[in-house]
Design a protein around this nucleic acid. Structure first.
Lengths: 213, 213
DNA sequence: AGATGAACTCGGGGAATTCCTAGGTGCCGA
DNA sequence: TCGGCACCTAGGAATTCCCCGAGTTCATCT
């Protein structure tokens, strides 16, 4: 039998190197990337079975990356490995299509176990987080789209990049679109959220986890 | 020759397990703890040569733990391994008696290198952080207790108003000065703090209590 | 008194951002 | 299959912001 193919997405190089050691016996670590955007770019080529990713990453955060990756490659299993135990993050993570959720303070053995579980089509959540969450989440009527996030994917991308401190020109370059388009998205976001300055926009982004202070 | 004795203090178990693999060849990892309080409790017994510690830890954070540990065991070398690149953290870290400062996104090789450097009595700071910081810090008079923010009153005023979401024109009106003057103050602040966008400025303001998220 | 430096105050000119407007694309229900 | 709608894309004009420099005040030092 061949080893399952794994991609690791985390911007902490030291952590990645450590994880590599933990994974290499059981799995085939076919790639590591430092942010969500790089993940979306390389995943189709590397054809992973499982993707491990952190939530807090520059350029494109883990939640958003998961959402887009799942759309591109629905068969790929996604496991979040992050420091955020906040229920809101867990919820968003599973809504984004994840199959597993670990914390960085989870035991090392959990990592291997989680990968094996999700490969069987099941879900894995670290015991450090109350199971109630997931149960409520999955049993919940499928149309719990109560709040489908007030922003479109493109808007969320632009929001994160603005809040990370990139200029509109830099963002345009990152997204390969015109500066004018970036301007429009930013303006749309601000109008929809009734914000009027970049400072307010940044605060909103921080408060909603698009970037960290 | 015997291996240097190392203690690792980090509340992320997964990360610790990874680090263990990275360290075990070169060093004698005599203990791992999950928070600063446990570190202070076990260090005297384990007699480490070097302590690696995260800043964000429950019960007793890394900065405070370092300060107290250094008082108890002045000969122990302390290296921070954290995700906070914020100059304020770096500053506090060295004031607390650290000899090294790494980021979790530093290269794995840096970890080994940093330990070896500090054991020789030198300082190590990851290149990811500007060296200016440390130099200024160590050359600076030893008695520079708590710098009251490197900004002038006017600058702090402008910073807060910007971060609260006012436009330069509104600020000018509030302070009864020309827009040009407001622009100048803002530019001064950004230059002094090495910030380049309003978003970064806003984050700084939040991180330093000039406004709330 | 004169020199020095820090802090605050603006102008001009060019770059960046915002405002207003509109074309293009993909999806979905009638 | 054909609108309708949500979303992404972008141009021109107006505004705001950024980067250069420069003048004023005031406390401090020689």
């Amino acid at each position: 039998m061949t080893k399952p193919r794994v991609i690791l997405a985390d911007d902490h190089t030291l952590v990645v190197e450590g994880f590599r050691k933990l994974l290499e016996e059981e799995f085939d670590l076919v790639g590591t990337v430092e942010d969500g955007r790089a993940l979306l770019k390389t995943a189709p080529t590397l054809q992973p079975d499982v993707v491990l990713l952190d939530i807090a990453m520059p350029s494109l955060n883990g939640i958003e990356a998961a959402r887009q990756l799942k759309k591109m490659m629905p068969e790929v299993k996604i496991i979040f490995v992050t420091m955020h135990a906040d229920p809101a993050y867990v919820t968003e993570g599973f809504r984004a299509g994840a199959s597993g959720y670990l914390l960085k303070r989870s035991a090392a053995a959990e990592l291997v176990q989680a990968i094996q579980v999700v490969l069987k089509g099941q879900h894995y959540v670290t015991p450090l987080i109350t199971m109630d969450l997931v149960r409520a989440l999955l049993e919940d009527s499928p149309e719990h789209q109560s709040k489908p996030a007030p922003l479109t994917p493109r808007q969320r991308e632009v929001l994160q990049l603005v809040a990370e401190g990139q200029s509109l020109k830099e963002i345009a370059n990152t997204l390969k679109i015109s500066v004018k388009t970036v301007e429009f998205h930013k303006a749309q976001i601000m109008e929809q959220l009734d914000l009027h300055t970049t400072a307010e926009l940044t605060k909103y982004a921080i408060a909603h986890g698009f970037t960290s202070p």
